[in-house]
Nucleic acid binder design. Structure first.
Lengths: 211, 211
DNA sequence: AACCATACTTGACCAACGGTCGAAAAATGT
DNA sequence: ACATTTTTCGACCGTTGGTCAAGTATGGTT
């Protein structure tokens, strides 16, 4: 069965990159290094991937496969309150958010933090665009059920996603946990008042402390 | 006078890069090429800049120097209504927003659009972090004058800046002008209702069509 | 003028990179 | 047993970002 076997190696390469990303920045990871970590020859990498960038793309996609899948399923769970689902959706994402993005790099790497820029960019693009339909659907149902009052569910979904994803990512505006909390609380307040949601409903959105 | 002279060459290098960016993507622009365009030797580049990345950083910084400066001044103009200043602040930025970011690249370059990711990332980081203090100040004054009702001016400023900057940049979520308009209108509605602003005050924020 | 220290310029050079390639080696089919 | 396809590989290539020793201009001091 060439299909599963191909996926085996494919995943091994992604595993290798994922592991290396916990130690170094991508710019400092060479294709040879990935190959070495994966235990295969450098040439083989290019049998499975067209370019180095494509490996990263695939890794990001794989990382969010599960949370995005569950997020999309959430949209169908009409028995749960819309904003509870919304909170669950984000919690599902948070788990894998910084899995391979090491912000606090301990290595004395002289490279600037901007090196990771395109990784973050890809992450943000991926999460926001993939989650928007699901969140839009949830909000739509909230509007229909009378829990939320707002004219444009798509716009609201996008606003919420952009703010939360950007703050969650914490690369555009590096912030302390307190500052993140402040912005999130601000967003909650704005949402509750701006969409006539019962106060406190959105407290689920508050990011629980970690680490 | 070594100071002005140094700035001369310094700017010549930035000019060269800026010009090249209208033709090619950064990844495909070599340092030698920049040097050639600037009419100097490659080695001299590294007399003025520590790295290739630093040139790009400097160019971005230079590009937003003026609009950011005027934006900061706006915060002091207490005689204008807060949200009018807010709108002016953004209009000032829009002009130079995509000056050197050629989205519609005509060259048959095979590189993916993601190549520009870190440029956009830098742009967003720069604009949001630089504008946040000014906007926070404006909102604070709006709260004091009773025009705006909100607890956390900093959080509100950040929310607005994140949403608008991301949508304005249009690289995280490539959208049609109509879609951008919808999100902006949604943000306006959310803000007006969520902060007890007189309806219509924020219509200035609506991005005027262009091109 | 002669001198000198500092500021600036340069292109050959280097190590390292992403990516290619032809050939070898597994794997598979018959 | 052979033939064909799939997979593996590392030497190799062109190019890159960055270094450097050697050079040239500049301008002050005597």
């Amino acid at each position: 069965m060439p299909d599963t076997k191909k996926h085996e190696k494919y995943d091994m390469i992604l595993d290798a990159l994922q592991q290396l990303l916990t130690e170094k920045k991508i710019q400092n990871i060479s294709v040879s290094e990935i190959a070495q970590k994966a235990g295969i020859g450098k040439g083989s990498i290019y049998y499975y991937f067209p370019s180095k960038d494509a490996i990263l793309d695939a890794l990001i996609e794989r990382s969010y496969e599960t949370p995005l899948h569950t997020a999309k399923n959430l949209a169908a769970q009409t028995d749960i309150a819309p904003f509870t689902r919304m909170a669950m959706l984000f919690q599902a994402c948070r788990n894998s958010s910084t899995a391979f993005i090491k912000e606090n790099n301990n290595s004395p790497d002289n490279a600037s933090a901007q090196d990771l820029a395109f990784l973050h960019h890809k992450y943000l693009t991926h999460v926001i665009s993939e989650l928007k339909p699901a969140l839009t659907e949830i909000i739509k149902q909230g509007i229909e059920s009378g829990d939320i009052h707002f004219d444009s569910p798509a716009a609201l979904a996008e606003i919420v996603l952009i703010v939360l994803a950007v703050k969650l990512d914490n690369s555009l505006l590096p912030s302390t946990p307190d500052e993140i909390e402040e912005t999130v609380q601000g967003l909650i307040a704005l949402l509750e008042k701006g969409t006539d949601i019962e106060q406190g409903t959105l407290s689920y959105l508050s990011l629980t402390p970690y680490e």
